[in-house]
Structures are given as structure tokens and as C-alpha cells.
Design a protein around this nucleic acid. Structure first.
Length: 745
DNA sequence: GCTGACACTTAGGACGTCCACT
DNA sequence: AGTGGACGTCCTAAGTGTCAGC
């Protein structure tokens, strides 16, 4: 069963980001329908009792069975809490993590600090095993000592490096050495006390550029008359003007939200005069920005270079931090600039003003003993804290959803890499027990308790279809999207028989980012019957799994396996599918491009499973046509070349001289070359066609154990660069270093 | 048990850049 | 030299999951 995901091939074709036209009901309904309201649910269940003559599925036996379940569920279940209460974990020691005093560099070294080779852990038998984070407390002392020792020694190479720096003369040597001297954090011990770092120093965020007033010749008109706006109102107006070309400035919600927030920024005079968005004319502003971006494109090389250099300087200054003796790249060191919020899908808050973030909104996180980042002159940070139990360097609260935003490290950093590695190890643990779990949930389909049946069916979907968990969302706060646990009755259709298959479930809902999930899946009979049961007497907008949410599900999963949550199934199924597909699709005799096509196909199978879609590129049709033209031309060339060979052969027969022989050879070579070129083009066309609506990047980056790909490359002698670009190689450095050609996920 | 706050991963699109081809 | 198109980077929204406090 594992990895058998071929059934949902139909998914992508019909899917797309859904716009307003997609038939999803406005979710205006009262919260009473919401799952949380169990009272209501019970009422509904109870009312079902009286109604014994539903026509749909009337076998006596089934009725009885159903009643039994309902009774059970409605009454005693809730009181019978699990005996298997989770053991109380020993509380983490509160030590603030600064067990060893942070080492402060008076001046951050420009280079990575290298750990001495002697310190590196010997490769153990199973190199890929991940050292569990939690270790017994008794070990703590020993471990800390080891850590401290390591840190002490870590410092040494730094010194030698500095010496080296003095002798810049033989920089060649150094440059050559650089790649192999990359810090291999994966060969070192990991902190075990829950602390994420012991020393952290950074320069703080780069604030958004201040607003620049429009030149006076760029005018705004209200109701046909020119009007000079106050700076605050003008800035917000420019946000709208910059979007004039976008469809969403025509959307009601967008306009309404924008106008409401814009008015808040107006002076009282402006407010009283500007009362109707339709009467606002932003065209000159829009033109101005268009002209600006044209000008930017048309800049001289020199000017472009200047910008590049400036960006590089900013990156060098703010783009790195020092964490535990190593210089690490920061992922997003810029504060998000103000603008108009554009959520994805049918977002109720689209068009709202995303406020400018001031230093007073920003929390800085760094070591006590580090050089604290300075706020811009005349301002203060909201707070400077020293919390080494978290990984972020900077945070602020955004005004649209009230969510917290963070500045964190790059995926190539130790702190992200360890987490990533751990993720795949958890998924591999799942591999070891997935059959047991599958048997278990299949058993649970027959449970007497409704909640357990629901849990089991939901888990089946998560496993088989790689659905997301589906947390509850607050209504009206974001687009109406769902995952497995939050599926509603309206999101599935049941067909006892469809297209020659029995027990087909048709899914049609909006998932994350309002990407449509559409899939028709034959399921086991028991699942089908259960679904019928779950849907009985419910309204379309009622929850399918009214006795289930992600927290219940994850609690259950945690009991089945340490570290198991719903999303682990996605990781597991994605990775195992890649591994299987690679095995299946790669044939030894294929040449390099064909092998890479096979890899992409395996990758694609995963992307389809995970429903990773993208909008078809706007230029797709045209570029495809171009490619086809090329192919046709190549074919013509080829047939010409073949004809040449024939005549050369004939020539040779007649003349029988060296010259004709040579000529024939040349012609033959030409044919071979053309054939190869043609094949390359055809492979390219196939790949592109198959890929038009599918995004491979997401799964590659987030779901596929990189060691599988690395092993595949090593096994077939494929250069890793063909699979991973530079950024990806940096992110997966750990995997590239540790996986051998025989790695098994 | 429920809720909200919080931390962190996963996601697609916009846009810039580079490179092969003409 | 110009250009189409692939590729890479940046951006930030939208998920997942945990935990503390009631």
C-alpha cells in the first residue's frame, strides 16, 4: 500500500487557484454550525434518532449498528478518558541556557569558524541516525562539559585563521581550501537542554525605506478636480496606484477595505471631501510608477552595478549573524515594507493597509553579552530580550491578522538544518511502524465509537492522499480553506459506483493558499460506509468529522509513535514515493538527460501527490510552440542528413575511394549528432508539457529526504548539480556529505 | 478541555538575472 | 547585440503544532 498513490493522477488537470468564480458558498453562517459546538452536534445526533425511516441505506442491520454507535458516542465516551494517560515528562531544567558564558568577539570574523578535524565525530555504523534531542537528564552534566570543551577548542582554529589572514599573500591556498573547510555541524553534538544557541549577535533588521513624496507634477484628482494630498494620505494612495493594473483593485472587498483604511490616514478635510473611491483618479500616479520601473530597467550598466554593490554591502552588513562561533546567513533581514495586504484566494481582508513597522514595534533577540543592534537614531526598540529557547533574531506583530513575524536564519544554517534532518528521521521512524498503524486504523473503522471511526477515516485520508491536517480557522479572518480534519460535507461526494470503480469519493475543496484539491478516489467499502454515516443528517456546511480536530488526532498519533503528527505522513509518503519511483523509472542504459527526466518524473509524482500546483506560465503556449517549431526544423534537418548518407553510400559504391569513405563517415556523424539533438529537444518538450501546472520545487525543498536524491546521484554517477542548484546544495549540505549510494530512506 | 499566543515550516507568485540561441 | 525563456531569489502569506493559563 505504501506509496501507492497513482490513483490521484487526475488531480492536477482540473485544479487551479480558485478565484471568485469557484462555487464555494459564502461562509456567512452562524457559528453554531461549527464543529466546536458539540452541544449542537449532539442535538443533531439526537434528533436523528426519531427519524428511523431514511430511505438511502435502509438495511436493518446497518441501522442497528448505527444506533449502537450513536448511543455509545453520545453518552459514555466522553467520560471514559484514556487510561493511557501520557507520562508526565520531566520538566525542562530552567537554566536559561547560558551555562557557559558566551564568547564575544570584539570584531566578527568575516569567515566561518572552523571546527578542528580532531573533534569530529567518527562516522558510526548508521551515520544517518539522528541523535535524539531529548536525552536523559543524568547525561546533562557530561554533555555540557563536552560541549564546553568543544567550544573552547572551537576558538583555536579561529586564531589560526586570523594569522592566515595576516598573510594575505597566499590567499590562493585559502580560496582553494574554502569548500572543504565548510563547517560540518552534523558531525557535532547537539544541545540537549532545549536551548537553541548559547551565543547570538547580529546587526538587527534593515528598516523599510522611508516614503518619498511624489513630485509635484504627479497629480491626484478627485471628482475630476486636482487635489493635493497630505503626505500620509498620499503614501497610501500610491500603494493603490501601484496596483492599478491588477485585477484585484476591481474587487469589491479589496476596494472597500482599502478605502476604509485609507480614510483613517486622511486629514479631516480630506476625509470629508473624499467620500467615494470611484471618484478617485490615481492614473497619473500609476503612470509615474510605471515610468519609474521602465527607467529602472533601462538604466545603464554602471547604475545597475551601483545598486548591486549597495545591495551586496547591505547583505554583508545585515545578512549575517554570529551564532555559537559561526557566521550564519540570515534568511530575511529586511522589515516588510508597508503596502496593501493581498491575501490569497478570496480573502476577507484583502486591500487593508499593512502598516509601516517602526523600531518601537520591534523586539530584538540576542545574547546578553553581545553587541546589541542599534535602533535608528532617535528611536528605540520595543524590547531587547535574551531568549535562547527560540531561534529568531527579530520579531514584530503585524497589524492585519495580529500575527507575529520573525527574522530567522537561512536554511543552510545549523539551526534549520538540524531541524530538517530531524524531520526526515521522524518520517523514517514512521516507515518502521506504518504497517502497524495502518492495521490499527483499519481496525478502528469498525469501532463502536464514532470519534474513533472518524479519527481512523481521517487518518486514512491523511496517509493515502497526503492531505494536510486541517486546523480550525477563525471565520472571517482569512479565506475559507480546509484540510482533512476541517473538511465539510460539501467538500466530498460519494459514488457507490463511478467510471467502473466501486466506492468512489470525490474531493473538491480549497486547501492551503486556496489551491483547489480535486480528486476522485476509490476507497475501501468500510471507509465508504463510514463516510455515509458521518454525512447523515448533516447540512452541506457541517463538518464531516464533527468528533475530530487536529489536536485530538495528533494526541492519538503521539501515543502511537514518539514525535508523530499528521504532517509526518506527508513527509513520509512523499519521500517513500520518490524512492520507489526512482527505483522504478531509472533504467541503467539511459543517458544523462533521460535519467534526469526520470528523476523529474519521480519528483513530479510526489508533487502531484502533495497537490503542489502552479499557475500555468503565461508564456507557456507560445514557448511550447517555439519548441515544437525547433523540433520540426530538427526533424527536417535529420531527414535531409539521412538522405545525404544514402547518396554518400551510393557514391561510395560507385567510386570505392578513400575520399567517399570519409565523406560517408562525416555524414553519418552528422546524422548521429542530429538524432541526439532531436532527442534532447523532445525530452525537453515532454518534461515541460508534463510540468506546466505542477510545481516541483516545493516538494524538493520541503518533503523529499535529500539523502534519497544524493544516493541516486551517486549510484548513477549523476552530478549533484543536475538535481540541486547552489542554494539547494547549501541547504542540503548535510545530506550531500553523509549519504552514500546505498542510502535507504 | 479550550483558547490564544507563539514559534516554526510550507507555499506560490513576483521579479530579477543569466544563458543559450539567433 | 538582442531576446526568449529558464532559473534563482526574494517575499510574505498561510499553514502546522505546542504550550501555558484559564
Amino acid at each position: 500500500m505504501s506509496g501507492d498513490h497513482s490513483h490521484n493522477n487526475s488531480q492536477i488537470d482540473s485544479g487551479s487557484r480558485v478565484n471568485d468564480s469557484h462555487k464555494h458558498k459564502e461562509k456567512n453562517k452562524d457559528k453554531e454550525h461549527k464543529h466546536k459546538d458539540h452541544k449542537k452536534d449532539k442535538e443533531r445526533e439526537n434528533s436523528k434518532y426519531g427519524n428511523s425511516d431514511h430511505k438511502d441505506f435502509s438495511e436493518k442491520h446497518r441501522e442497528k449498528e448505527k444506533e449502537r454507535i450513536k448511543h455509545k458516542d453520545g453518552s459514555t465516551d466522553r467520560h471514559r478518558e484514556k487510561d493511557k494517560r501520557k507520562e508526565i515528562k520531566p520538566k525542562k531544567e530552567k537554566e536559561n541556557g547560558f551555562s557557559s558564558p558566551p564568547r564575544i568577539k570584539s570584531e566578527p570574523d568575516n569567515d566561518v569558524y572552523h571546527s578542528p578535524k580532531s573533534l569530529k565525530r567518527e562516522r558510526d555504523h548508521d551515520e544517518t541516525e539522528f541523535k535524539p534531542k531529548k536525552i536523559k537528564l543524568e547525561n546533562d552534566k557530561v554533555d555540557k562539559k563536552a560541549k564546553k570543551r568543544k567550544q573552547d577548542e572551537d576558538i583555536k582554529p579561529k586564531k589560526t585563521q586570523k594569522n592566515k589572514k595576516g598573510e594575505v599573500a597566499d590567499g590562493k591556498k585559502k580560496a582553494k581550501k574554502e569548500p572543504e573547510e565548510k563547517w560540518k555541524w552534523w558531525e557535532e553534538e547537539r544541545a540537549t537542554d532545549g536551548s537553541k544557541w548559547s551565543f547570538l549577535e547580529h546587526k538587527g533588521p534593515v528598516m523599510a525605506a522611508p516614503y518619498e513624496l511624489l513630485p509635484s507634477n504627479v497629480r491626484f484628482f478627485y471628482d475630476g478636480k486636482q487635489m493635493k494630498l497630505s503626505p500620509e494620505a498620499e503614501e497610501v494612495a500610491t500603494f493603490f496606484a501601484k496596483m492599478l493594473d491588477h485585477e484585484y483593485t476591481t474587487k469589491d472587498t479589496f476596494r472597500k477595505n482599502f478605502f476604509k483604511d485609507w480614510r483613517k490616514e486622511m486629514t479631516s478635510e480630506e476625509k470629508s471631501r473624499i467620500t467615494d473611491l470611484k471618484k478617485c483618479n490615481f492614473n497619473e500616479m500609476g503612470e509615474y510608477f510605471k515610468a519609474q520601473s521602465e527607467a529602472r530597467k533601462a538604466m545603464t550598466k554602471d547604475d545597475k552595478l551601483k545598486i548591486k554593490v549597495e545591495n551586496e554591502r547591505l547583505l554583508q552588513e545585515y545578512g549575517f549573524c554570529i551564532m555559537d562561533n559561526h557566521k550564519e546567513r540570515i534568511a530575511n533581514f529586511r522589515i516588510e515594507p508597508p503596502g496593501l495586504f493581498r491575501g490569497r484566494g478570496d480573502h476577507p481582508k484583502m486591500g487593508m493597509l499593512k502598516r509601516r513597522i517602526r523600531p518601537e514595534d520591534i523586539i530584538i533577540n540576542c545574547s546578553k553579552g553581545s553587541k546589541h543592534p542599534k535602533p535608528p537614531p532617535g528611536t528605540k526598540w520595543k524590547e531587547v530580550r535574551h531568549d535562547n529557547k527560540v531561534t529568531w533574531l527579530v520579531s514584530w506583530t503585524e497589524n492585519i491578522q495580529g500575527a507575529i513575524k520573525y527574522i530567522m536564519l537561512n536554511p543552510s544554517s545549523r539551526i534549520k538544518g538540524e531541524k530538517d534532518w530531524q524531520k526526515y528521521e521522524t518520517a523514517r521512524n514512521l516507515k518502521k511502524c506504518v504497517e502497524r498503524l495502518r492495521n490499527q486504523y483499519r481496525e478502528d473503522w469498525k469501532s463502536k465509537e464514532m470519534r474513533i471511526r472518524q479519527r481512523a477515516v481521517a487518518l486514512y485520508f491523511i496517509d493515502k492522499l497526503a492531505l494536510r491536517a486541517g486546523n480550525e480557522k477563525e471565520e472571517g479572518e482569512s479565506a475559507d480553506t480546509v484540510g482533512c480534519c476541517s473538511l465539510r460535507v460539501e467538500h466530498i461526494n460519494l459514488y457507490p459506483e463511478k467510471d467502473g470503480q466501486d466506492f468512489v469519493v470525490e474531493f473538491d475543496f480549497l486547501g492551503k493558499d486556496s489551491i483547489r484539491y480535486y480528486n476522485k478516489v476509490p476507497v475501501e467499502k468500510r471507509v465508504f460506509k463510514n463516510l455515509q454515516l458521518f454525512m447523515e443528517n448533516k447540512q452541506p456546511e457541517d463538518d464531516l468529522f464533527d468528533r475530530l480536530n487536529t489536536s485530538i488526532l495528533n494526541k492519538h498519533l503521539q501515543e502511537l509513535m514518539d514525535g508523530l503528527t499528521a504532517k509526518v505522513f506527508r513527509t513520509y509518503n512523499a519521500s517513500i514515493t520518490l524512492q520507489q519511483q526512482l527505483k522504478e523509472l531509472t533504467s541503467p542504459e539511459e543517458n544523462l538527460p533521460a535519467k534526469i527526466l526520470s528523476y523529474n518524473r519521480a519528483n513530479r509524482a510526489v508533487a502531484i501527490l502533495c497537490n503542489h500546483q502552479r499557475a500555468q506560465p503565461k508564456t507557456f503556449e507560445k514557448s511550447m510552440q517555439n519548441l515544437q517549431t525547433k523540433i520540426d526544423a530538427k526533424k527536417d534537418q535529420l531527414s535531409d542528413a539521412k538522405r545525404d548518407v544514402k547518396s554518400a553510400k551510393a557514391d561510395l559504391k560507385v567510386r570505392r575511394d578513400e575520399k567517399s569513405k570519409k565523406a560517408l563517415e562525416t555524414k553519418k556523424k552528422a546524422v548521429e549528432r542530429l538524432e541526439e539533438q532531436l532527442m534532447k529537444l523532445e525530452v525537453q518538450a515532454t518534461d515541460r508539457e508534463e510540468n506546466k501546472q505542477i510545481a516541483l520545487g516545493t516538494s524538493k525543498l520541503n518533503y523529499l529526504d535529500p539523502r534519497i536524491s544524493v544516493a541516486w546521484c551517486k549510484k548513477w554517477g549523476i552530478p549533484i548539480e543536475k538535481i540541486y542548484n547552489k542554494t539547494q546544495r547549501e541547504k542540503f549540505a548535510w545530506a550531500i556529505d553523509m549519504a552514500d549510494d546505498d542510502y535507504e530512506f
